[in-house]
């Protein structure tokens, strides 16, 4: 029999969020990047428009990444003392669409870097590269609340993507975004209900922020509970297409820490001979994690390994080919 192609009728679509700002828009980026906006499930071009391809950002730190495995550090050893040069290498050599700066050194248990120093580092990175930036604190809420304001100010007008607003601690990041026209990462702990509620809380502070929120559903690595995130992402995407506007924000997956703290990514082959060559296995573990998230509907990935980035970008190229009937 001849087959009639089935297309789902959706009422809604994913919100489109613009990241970065050019000179005309009050920033200094050479271009902006749009994420989201799709009217179909991941890569099903035949049923609805998918205007923007998923974006791959690479993570850099404001200090030497001692805890990264040697095989990964190798790629950055000439630049990891200098965040500007590091960012530039990610963009120029490794093809990163965006750069995510993590102010790891602000951790009170590490260098306890001051807000002013973080702001100065951000400025250096802004000068070194022209792509839109993502910014993370050190991960300790008390300290991050004191640095995100000054960092937001230092990048005023650049429409940075600021991380992270959480249910118990969203006001400082959301305020920093409101004050200086940035966007916000709303992070929920593998919990779709909190993901939805957090968007509402942020929007209550400022309605225009609704179109500047990116959801981080919290990523678990491949082999370590990724299926929970996958299903939350699928539910959120399907919900958005069915008209749930409070879950319709684009989604970001910061897979760096989760992937690279797992044995499959960092163990040398001589410690687990049954798992094969490490030089291939490490990027493959990160790339397959990213592949699964792309199938779940992720719009923006933050990654570390240059070879994994290459694999994922090629995969996105293939998936963005029109498959209409």
């Amino acid at each position: 029999m001849a087959v009639d192609i089935l297309k789902e009728k959706y009422r809604g679509q994913v919100r489109e969020v613009v990241l970065g700002a050019t000179k005309d828009e009050g920033g200094t980026r050479s271009h902006t990047i749009k994420v989201g906006g799709e009217k179909a499930l991941p890569f099903l071009h035949f049923e609805g428009e998918i205007p923007n391809r998923p974006v791959v950002a690479m993570e850099i730190w404001d200090m030497v990444p001692d805890e990264w495995p040697e095989s990964l550090k190798e790629y950055f050893k000439d630049v990891y003392n200098d965040p500007g040069a590091w960012a530039k290498k990610c963009v120029d050599e490794y093809g990163a669409d965006m750069v995510a700066v993590r102010f790891k050194s602000a951790d009170p248990d590490l260098n306890d870097t001051s807000a002013d120093e973080c702001a100065a580092t951000l400025k250096k990175v802004l000068e070194a590269v022209s792509v839109p930036l993502i910014v993370y604190g050190c991960g300790k809420a008390e300290k991050d609340n004191t640095i995100m304001g000054p960092i937001g100010e230092a990048g005023a007008g650049e429409n940075l993507l600021l991380g992270v607003a959480e249910q118990e601690n969203y006001k400082s990041v959301a305020s920093a975004a409101m004050a200086n026209k940035h966007s916000v990462i709303a992070q929920s702990p593998i919990d779709i209900n909190i993901a939805k509620q957090l968007n509402i809380l942020i929007a209550e502070m400022s309605t225009p922020l609704l179109d500047r929120i990116v959801i981080d559903p919290t990523i678990a690595a491949l082999g370590y509970g990724i299926e929970y995130c996958y299903s939350i992402m699928e539910r959120a995407r399907f919900g958005a297409l069915q008209g749930d506007k409070m879950l319709a924000m684009p989604m970001i997956g910061n897979i760096c820490h989760e992937v690279w703290s797992k044995k499959e990514a960092y163990l040398p082959a001589d410690e687990e001979p049954g798992w094969g060559d490490q030089a291939e296995r490490s990027p493959a573990w990160e790339a397959v994690t990213a592949m699964a998230l792309l199938q779940g509907g992720i719009n923006l990935l933050i990654m570390r390994h240059p070879e994994a980035v290459k694999m994922v970008k090629n995969n996105i190229d293939d998936l963005m080919k029109d498959n209409s009937y």
Binding site: I194, K196, Q197, I200, D244, K245
Partner: peptide, 14 residues
């Protein structure tokens, strides 16, 4: 509908 604390508000303003 997917639950969240403000579900009634979300329904009303959808």
């Amino acid at each position: 509908d997917i639950f969240c604390d403000s579900y009634a508000e979300v329904y009303r303003t959808r």
